[in-house]
Design a protein around this nucleic acid. Structure first.
Length: 491
RNA sequence: GGCGCAUUCGUCUAGCGGUUUAGGACGCCGCCCUCUCAAGGCGGAGAUCACCGGUUCGAAUCCGGUAUGCGCUACCA
């Protein structure tokens, strides 16, 4: 390949980006980076009615979160700008008029009502829907008269009535369509905005895009685009259609699948590098075993040839696993830095802020080993902060133990621990294990009772480490409270 | 209805005519480690490669048909 690769991500701001959209961006970005080419972001805001405020910001935010930097696009200079189609209207108008002048397109004055009635009739007769080409034969005079009546036309493309249009898709191979199955589609709408088809072709050419990497649902539109390239006298780029991403119900991922907005994953405590890695594996693979890869490794090995053709179901369970794996691979400091906002936000409001950074620092490794997402962190460590533990006293009585035995165990532990010269992992173990034996208990029974006394729960990080972090003072206090609870518990 | 594409364990996938009794991962189950959990280690169940024909000495891999699914079929992208 001698020319410099230029790919683009061309979202329409009609909604917040979901993982499917962003996977498309990711692959286009990867291909550009692999070939040391350029990645362009172009906002296709040609549907005024469906434009959602804040969508552009959300799209850019999503790209930034995954660290998919663009060489040209919004907020970035570039010699092919502007990068909002709403600011390039003259270009499309010019192209449309040129096509009309060349005899490749024509003005259509059909009202929405007529088109709707036409489609209803076609449906009734079980005929394929499509524009009936009524205005195709309008003369210049007739057009002028309609114009003088105040009608604003759309511009439609004169699709060849016969023959076929074929192309070679980088991913799907040879694809071909009969021209007579394609109707005279609209190029320019009556509001002066272009349709996707026109704007896309004009811009991909103007911006010298070499590889159009987009979702599979565009395959059937590609012949239209090819016809336009030809009519406009442009050399078409390479097309690579990506397999779709499906929801659990095997239908194309969309808003109704719940938490599919990319930014929601960030807010749920997923790491961008985990999401990056995971999304990469949806439709692409390096080999038969490698799954966890660095971004550099992926860039270096990425290729369109290894993209599969089958749609992929988004598997949240696997993302969770991968995210946990990435969390555990973080350095302790980095984990703390990332988890802190979630901790500040997720801990009960009555806990005073700011949190004691030193205290947090000591408990974080305990959470890092267990969290699959950052949002789980507060729930993993909240007992370190809570001033009064809430739990059922019966939990203090471990399996195969009586209330008396538990009470005795707690009292003995309280005494031993307060006499301990140092409150460290080894010293705790050194006194607690023998104590279990003295009491005729299994270590697990004693530790279980102590765990509930100290953390208020039966499942928590290892007891000694937890106690060391909590500190002797609080531990003694909590064990004291546990003893009280047991005493009050009717025997 | 028309057109297009796809079809390997529940899910993500490897496989591009013989090396496959189809490999890996998630999830699931069991064991080990172990104070609970998590992590980690080991092992297991799980796919007659949608189906039916054909080509070939030999097919998950090539060809045809059927079924199913999905996409497109807007003055939406």
């Amino acid at each position: 390949m001698t020319e410099t690769v230029r790919t683009r991500f061309a979202p329409s701001p009609t909604g917040f980006p979901h993982v499917g959209n962003i996977r498309t961006a990711l692959f286009a970005w990867l291909f550009a980076r692999h070939h040391k080419g350029s990645f362009v972001v172009r906002i296709e805001d040609t549907d005024v009615a469906r434009t959602v405020t804040g969508a552009v910001e959300a799209i850019l935010e999503g790209l930034r979160w995954l660290n998919l930097d663009w060489d040209e696009g919004p907020e970035t200079e570039g010699k092919y700008g502007p990068y909002f189609q709403s600011q390039r209207l003259a270009l499309y108008k010019e192209a449309a008029e040129r096509l009309v002048a060349q005899g490749n397109a024509y003005y259509c004055y059909c009202s929405p009502e007529r088109l709707e009635a036409m489609r209803a009739e076609q449906a009734r007769r079980k005929q394929p829907p499509g524009y009936d080409r009524m205005c195709r034969r309008l003369t210049a005079d007739e057009c002028a008269r309609k114009n003088s009546e105040g009608l604003t036309p759309v511009v439609r493309f004169k699709t060849p009535l016969e023959g076929k249009t074929a192309y070679h898709d980088v991913i799907w191979g040879d694809v071909s369509f009969e021209n007579n199955t394609i109707d005279d589609f609209v190029l320019l709408k009556s509001d002066g905005y272009p349709t996707y088809h026109l704007a896309n072709v004009v811009d991909d050419h103007a911006m010298e895009i070499t590889h159009v990497i987009r979702a599979e649902e565009w395959i059937s539109s590609t012949p239209r685009h090819l016809m336009l390239y030809r009519a406009l006298g442009y050399a078409p780029p390479q097309f690579a259609h990506l397999p779709m991403i499906l929801g659990p119900d095997r239908v194309k991922l969309s808003k109704r699948h719940g938490a599919v907005s990319l930014i929601e994953y960030r807010d749920q405590g997923y790491l961008p590098e985990a999401m990056f890695n995971f999304l990469t594996l949806l439709g692409w693979s390096l080999d038969d075993k490698t799954e966890i890869m660095t971004r550099e490794q992926i860039i270096q090995n990425f290729s369109l040839e290894r993209i599969s053709k089958t749609a992929a179901v988004f598997n949240l369970e696997k993302l969770n696993w991968m995210n946990g794996s990435y969390i555990r691979s973080l350095s302790a400091d980095e984990f703390m830095r990332r988890a802190m906002p979630f901790l500040e936000k997720g801990l009960p409001p009555e806990i005073k802020r700011p949190l004691d950074s030193d205290y947090v620092h000591r408990m974080m490794p305990l959470a890092q080993e267990r969290a699959r997402t950052l949002v789980e962190v507060p729930g993993l460590v909240d007992f370190f902060f809570v001033s009064e533990l809430q739990y059922e006293p019966v939990l203090l009585i471990d399996k195969k133990m009586t209330r008396e035995a538990s009470l005795q165990a707690l009292e003995a532990a309280h005494q031993k621990l307060s006499a301990l010269p140092s409150f460290e992992n080894d010293s705790l173990e050194g006194v607690l294990r023998p104590l279990a034996e003295e009491l005729g208990l299994k270590a697990g029974q004693l530790f279980g009772t102590l765990r509930v006394a100290v953390t208020g729960r039966t499942v928590a990080p290892p007891l000694f480490q937890t106690m060391v972090v909590i500190g002797r003072g609080l531990c003694m206090e909590r064990i004291g409270i546990a003893i009280e609870k047991l005493r009050r518990l009717a025997g």
